[in-house]
Design a protein around this nucleic acid. Sequence first.
DNA 1: CTGTATCCAGAGGGATACTG
DNA 2: CAGTATCCCTCTGGATACAG
Lengths: 123, 123
Amino acid sequence: MSTAAITVPVTVADHENCPATSVLRRVGDKWSVVILSVLAQRAYGFNELDRSVEGLSRRMLTRTLRALEEDGLISRTLHPSVPPRVDYALTDLGRSFLEPVRALGLWALAHRSDLEATRTCDS
Amino acid sequence: MSTAAITVPVTVADHENCPATSVLRRVGDKWSVVILSVLAQRAYGFNELDRSVEGLSRRMLTRTLRALEEDGLISRTLHPSVPPRVDYALTDLGRSFLEPVRALGLWALAHRSDLEATRTCDS
DNA sequence: CTGTATCCAGAGGGATACTG
DNA sequence: CAGTATCCCTCTGGATACAG
């Protein structure tokens, strides 16, 4: 974490094959971080998630949840009750993932005046 | 950076207006981080950058450089010589930006086995 | 409640050719 | 050298309707 070190991906074709790249793209997609942030509070059911995140379509909710599950960032637990209930929750990996993501969010907040996109955004 | 704290964006419509969101999208786009990483070494000229990043088109190079410049992450310096020479370099803001980005990259590297996308990626 | 399937519009991004 | 302008194709993501 010092000043220099790490020559970073750079000059890439592996760009595609690099695990860092896929992680960055995941962070950049529209809903992943929002969903992970919601799940950071507690486990949620499907519709509950749908209602909690304004503007998120059921289609993208499904797709994003599947992607996050494949990455091992969240877990999906089916409770075969009537009606059926599914719980989505962060895994340990997901929790650890949120740390660097939050660092990035904090950076953005700390430098929002420098970034000139100074629209007010609470908390 | 403790365990809890920070309730994060969550349940959003401001999602769009939040500075953190735009930063995450920037991180997620295809070339920004690669270009910033290259510039972390030293200043580069336009064609020099083009040649250094395999697979990057001149069109996207221009667009990405403009975007990064507007964000204040890089500087563009025109030297009116013959032939003309332009230098792109990281700003202090750009350098500070790379810190959390690298943290994310290091996380990805550290957990690449957990992420199951275990294609070999050196450095 | 928890999804899947279809359709469709818009953004992202590559190839190529041209300009100061 | 340092770009701009077009064309075009793919991927993302929203709307809507249907299913277990």
